[in-house]
């Protein structure tokens, strides 16, 4: 059989994802795609892949996989899930070359919610409707449109490592600290001034109703102006809708494409990963920024993604003078939120 990884234990919920499937929302299909695209890009960069190569998205825990190839380069980035190769602890944010028969174990996340496994050369999986992303509700993409199962076989395109393994040093990894920034609207006018003040001034807690479709929050009810039904319109990634009960629901990559509840605000793209990495019970605060500020932030965030490769080091090579200089010059370019260092990595209280 051709080179592949075989799933021994699929973890909590593991799916194949890439940047997502675009152009079909008009036909009722949302994009899907990695909930923390920056972490996916980093994992891909570490193994020499293009940014949007398909990866495995693990949720809370990753289980274990066995390598069925002579040599296979892998890297895991995102939530802090303890890694082990044949039982020996292994670093995340670092490329590892695994020999045939090696077993990679991805443990329960210490912080964060989702981690990404990239394999050098990528998975030999055919795109469906333009993407390899798994859309669970419709059974599209990935491997048979389902989460990975024990025994699932993930064929590899060409896992032969090229060049020495790379690492992203700890000071350059993204963190998810700070408030979740939003642009108000499209239907902020469906809420009272008090309702908007409640939304922006209150802590909201991630409930158990959180998945790739959306994240339901608990907290003070947000008052609608009159009624909570609007004529259904389009929903984007990060739309925050408020149904009749007044508590916000953040709609994510696998969301329904249209909906009839007013949307008070939309999360900026740079902060979507904060929701993708938010755990049940975590407290979230929202901060409104102007549309213009959000646009500048989006451009800066895209630039951070484009600079990942420049920020990688040779694994085990120590820090070079050039690197130290670079840190001083462009420190924090990979961090999605170069916020205060004294906050916990996942922003939890």
């Amino acid at each position: 059989m051709a080179d592949h990884l075989v799933v021994l234990d699929p973890g909590t919920l593991s799916t194949i994802q890439d940047f997502g499937r675009y152009g079909l929302q008009r036909f009722g299909i949302s994009a899907a795609g990695a909930l923390d695209p920056m972490a996916m890009r980093i994992a891909n960069a570490l193994v020499g892949n293009s940014p949007g190569e398909a990866v495995v998205e693990f949720t809370l825990s990753g289980g274990s996989l066995r390598v069925e190839a002579d040599l296979c380069r892998i890297a895991v980035a995102g939530a802090e899930m303890p890694l082990a190769i044949d039982g020996a602890p292994a670093e995340p944010y670092r490329a590892h070359d695994l020999a045939r028969g090696s077993i990679l174990t991805i443990g329960f996340a210490r912080t964060g919610m989702r981690a990404y496994l990239a394999v050098g050369g990528g998975f030999a999986i055919e795109p469906v409707l333009g993407s390899r992303s798994t859309h669970l509700r419709t059974g599209l993409g990935g491997i048979d449109g389902t989460p990975l199962r024990a025994g699932s076989v993930m064929p590899l395109r060409d896992p032969t490592p090229i060049g020495p393994p790379l690492i992203l040093s700890a000071d350059r990894r993204p963190d998810q600290a700070g408030p979740v920034r939003v642009v108000m609207g499209p239907q902020a006018d469906a809420f009272t001034a008090e309702g908007i003040a409640t939304f922006l001034g209150s802590p909201y807690t991630v409930t158990t109703k959180t998945d790739r479709m959306g994240c339901q929050l608990d907290g003070p009810a947000i008052a609608h102006r009159d009624g909570f039904n609007i004529v259904s319109d389009g929903i984007v990634n990060g739309s925050i809708q408020v149904p009749g009960h007044g508590r916000p629901i953040i709609l994510l990559a696998d969301r329904q494409t249209t909906g009839g509840y007013p949307k008070i605000a939309t999360i900026v793209s740079a902060d979507l990963a904060k929701i993708g990495q938010a755990r049940i019970g975590q407290v979230i605060r929202f901060e409104a920024i102007s549309a213009e500020a959000a646009e500048r932030l989006a451009i800066a965030f895209a630039a951070q993604g484009d600079m990942i490769r420049d920020n990688l080091d040779l694994a085990g090579a120590g820090i070079s003078t050039e690197r130290l200089l670079a840190v001083n010059l462009i420190g924090g370019v990979v961090s999605a939120q170069p916020g205060p260092a004294d906050e916990t990595p996942d922003g939890s209280p």
Binding site: G185, I267, S269
Partner: peptide, 8 residues
């Protein structure tokens, strides 16, 4: 025109 975030 209604804002739907930075990409919408």
């Amino acid at each position: 025109f209604l804002d739907a975030g930075d990409c919408g």
